[in-house]
Write a protein that binds this DNA or RNA. Structure first.
Lengths: 339, 339
DNA sequence: AGCAGGTGTGAATACGTATTCAAGTTTATT
DNA sequence: AATAAACTTGAATACGTATTCACACCTGCT
């Protein structure tokens, strides 16, 4: 194992000083063409590459973003993860990733790990943070953004889709479709995404005189959603439409209806989901759903985070990105609405 | 933004020297109980946490593993990713992650990024490395392991399932089921996983006198697999069984058969996949498939990688982990085989 | 009491780089 | 041609920690 080659070694080989080597590899710093040539040649011959750790230690910039993510079984997050990785890499940042159970205590511990590694910023994908934690981060000057999760107090930045508006769209669509008994298997009510979609949905329902539709919490889980489905159909007044809090649960609902209850989707019962993950377009599901534009959401997170890092402007900002209702076969289509 | 609190600050506050503070936070180093108490109190009061960058710079251990992954749309890899994250964290390591297109050139660039960050080891999940790259890593003393991909020359470590054996199992199962026209939509033949499964399958077919069954490369892609399915059924001699190179493609094959060709799965045609991802057990698919034990494979990669890091023993090792055939409804069950 | 051996601590240094500062060199200006 | 201004470069230093080394201290032995 040969000793690592350092900027000193390159300097010696090129007959210049160590700072000159450093300057050659620091963008935006001028070095005469002659010396630059010599340094680059020497560096190439020796196989020199700058040590990022040493660089970060002195600049205070690690060029690393901490990413904490839960629910990786939901393909929406893997799509987002992939996009984040590409986008951040394009902008020169690396990702240090952790999976977290959704307990706040767990998240706190992981965030401290990230801080120890001097990350320049933190993205929380579908997990929330304790306020003790966000205060600490504010002190430390490390920006934090929630991805696909809002926060009650406005002191913390987030990027979500327009969940309230999306819930409204679904209710309007189902009501226009002449459905009489519309139920909702919601996302986890402890999460803003689950709560806001539900609230928007209920708002429109009330506006149209559908008082107190049945709502069951599906907890963003396939199993809970299947159980909720069974409970909805164990009563006398069975639904003719179900708005499901995300696609991941909707697939489970569809399968439960088809397999266990022999109910036909799109005719006997209309199903509408939320997210528009790739699987929603699969022939097995053909799921009508509200699109969360993962690409634009990721761009927004990255833009906002980097702006905060480089601008040192930590004023929180809540971004909501609107998405259309994507109409497929899983729900009856109202007259005059196009597929 | 308050200045970062360093070990110097803690030393001053506790009335000791900086090295003493360092020793308190370095496991396996003795400090008298009295001083340790004072240091821990001062550290707690000031909110001190050691700077991992500075520590890594001097120890030469970043406690970070580089992970490069492709095909994140295949749930097998997200399951593995989740497990890797948890396992590595338990053992004190962090993950720096990159998504890579499957071009070798792309991978080389990313690996250099990782080396610049002084990662202690590298895992390549379903991507392969150029030999120029592996030589460089060997020089550098940074261990590399391939996950779910083998390599022709034996100089590089890998963890895979027993793909050849798995391909054999499928062929034996389908032949025992009295299938007459068995075809194979293979995984990408440029990848060892795709190739080995195919080879094992063909071997058994030949042993039983089925000469030259139809094989089409599905490239691990849903679209290519759907196209392959159509081409198989565009001929006069249509298959009564298809071995598909992984589950991800198998779902696409099943949907194409059901939706476009109105063929019933498990009766008209038997489908067998490979991986046993969670989705295979979904009621919509009920896919018979060879299980790749993701947990055990991840444990093997992590064990092997850490052994190489800590033992500095870089002798390559190829690990193969056997997995059972999981029998479900997507393929006719031979007499005497239990579901 | 005297000395060998062990233990805990601080001073000094190292890790590999970016940056400040002063000195040296070139270019522009009158 | 002389001086001011602009630009390059190297010496020295800083980042925050872990580790070597020497020293002082305490223990247990003859």
């Amino acid at each position: 194992m040969p000793p690592k080659v350092t900027s000193q070694d390159v300097a010696r080989a090129a007959g210049v000083s160590q700072p000159t080597v450093s300057r050659v590899f620091t963008p935006g710093v001028k070095v005469s063409a002659a010396l630059e040539e010599k340094v680059r040649n020497a560096a190439h011959d020796l196989g020199y590459r700058p040590n990022t750790l040493a660089r970060s230690l002195i600049t205070g910039q690690s060029m690393t973003i901490g990413l904490i993510v839960a629910y990786l079984d939901n393909p929406f997050y893997t799509e987002a993860l992939e996009k984040m990785s590409r986008t951040l890499k394009e902008r020169g940042y690396n990702i240090m990733i952790f999976m977290a159970a959704n307990h706040a205590s767990d998240v706190d511990g992981v965030v401290h790990d990230l801080l120890d590694h001097q990350v320049d910023g933190i993205i929380l994908a579908s997990v929330s943070a304790s306020s003790a934690l966000t205060e600490r981060l504010l002190e430390e000057g490390v920006p934090l953004i929630l991805f696909n999760r809002g926060h009650s107090d406005q002191t913390i930045s987030s990027v979500t889709s327009a969940n309230h508006q999306g819930g409204r769209k679904v209710a309007e669509f189902l009501i226009a479709g002449q459905h009489q008994r519309i139920a909702h298997i919601s996302g986890w009510q402890g999460a803003s995404t689950g709560y806001d979609r539900c609230a928007g949905f209920l708002e429109v329902m009330a506006e149209h005189g559908h008082s107190a539709p049945t709502v069951v919490d599906g907890l963003f889980s396939r199993e809970a959603a299947a159980a909720a489905t069974r409970s909805l159909f164990a009563t006398s007044r069975t639904p003719d439409a179900i708005f499901v809090g995300n696609d991941h649960m909707a697939f489970s609902v569809i399968e439960t209806l088809q397999t266990e209850l022999d109910i036909e989707i799109g005719t006997d019962v209309s199903i509408v989901g939320y997210d528009d993950v790739a699987m929603s377009a699969w022939p097995s599901f053909e799921l009508t759903t509200v699109r969360q534009p993962a690409n634009r959401m990721v761009d927004a997170v990255v833009d906002q985070l980097i702006a905060q890092i480089e601008g040192k402007d930590l004023t929180p900002k809540q971004v909501e990105i609107d998405g259309p209702l994507i109409i497929r076969r899983s729900a009856r289509i109202p007259k005059g609405w196009s597929e």
